[in-house]
Design a protein around this nucleic acid. Structure first.
Length: 263
DNA sequence: ATGGCTGCAGGATGCAGA
């Protein structure tokens, strides 16, 4: 079972490239972030005709997450629990049936948090605390799950080509990195780091200042696996080809393969 | 670099992103 995550930075702007990528890779499940579309504006039929079920949690202009799945959803759930007043569309989870029982996959778009010293940074940290609380509940169920998305956190210096350039950025703050480490401390596994300790593994290159041409990238898109999912981890790939395509997103897909068969 | 691009809403340019 291949589970991918991709911050597409606008579904309308990326539909052509996304469809070409889907036809090429044909992953079982795709978690999308920053669709920047309301649910009604999401081109569901283009995915349905390729055999994908579609779940969206959209918002006008900003944010928005979606899940595409070649396997039927048993249930879907939008919004990260813990704050009923939070209107930002950043979390969607779905459960599918496998030969070994239920598998939960969540598409998440953690807040950016810049600039520091503003309510945006405290919102980021509060959101990560809510995610941690939600993860504690999921772990108690002892079923396999994958939390895939744009975490907007650079975990370690090796995850940036120029870590010194990010020290005053919300993505690389000690508090942000501590929130990430707390998730690992609960027993979640960083899929990419479970398969490689190499550098030069990035998922984002800024549009500005020739970041892609200079390989000035950062690793901020991640898949965290529950212990039961990590036991089935087969491979992890960052598909950086698409960053060189026409009109690219500034993020590229991360693809996790689990030795789990759909029912 | 002075975020140097990009997407979005809307119909000009401001906001958000990372």
């Amino acid at each position: 079972m291949q589970i991918a995550t991709w911050n597409v930075n606008g579904i309308k702007a990326r539909i052509e490239g996304l469809l070409a990528w889907l036809d090429d890779v044909r992953p079982d499940i795709v978690c999308l972030q920053e669709i920047k579309s309301v649910d009604e504006g999401f081109p569901e039929h283009l995915f349905a005709e390729r055999g994908y079920n579609v779940a969206t949690h959209g918002q006008k202009s900003f944010n928005g997450v979606a899940i595409l799945s070649r396997h039927p959803f048993d249930e879907t759930s939008a919004r990260l629990p813990g704050d009923e007043t939070d209107e930002q569309a950043r979390f969607l989870s779905a459960t599918i049936s496998t030969r070994d029982g239920a598998l939960t996959v969540a598409s998440l778009y953690c807040p950016n948090g810049n600039p520091l010293g503003t309510e945006k940074f405290s919102y980021k940290l509060g959101w990560m605390e809510r995610l941690e609380a939600h993860v504690r509940g999921l772990l108690a169920e002892e079923t396999p799950f994958v939390l895939a998305g744009d975490y907007n956190i650079i975990p370690e210096p090796i995850d940036a080509r120029r870590p010194e350039a990010w020290v005053d950025d919300a993505l690389f703050q000690p508090e942000s990195r501590a929130a990430w480490r707390r998730l690992l401390g609960l027993g979640l596994v960083d899929a990419l780091r479970a398969t490689s300790d190499a550098g030069d593994l990035y998922t984002f290159w800024d549009y500005q200042a020739g970041a892609w041409q200079k390989n000035n990238g950062i690793r901020i898109d991640h898949a965290l696996l529950s212990p039961q999912a990590a036991d089935r981890l087969a491979s992890v790939v960052i598909d950086k080809r698409v960053r060189g395509w026409e009109r690219p997103s500034d993020h590229v897909p991360l693809i996790v393969e689990l030795d789990i068969a759909a029912r």
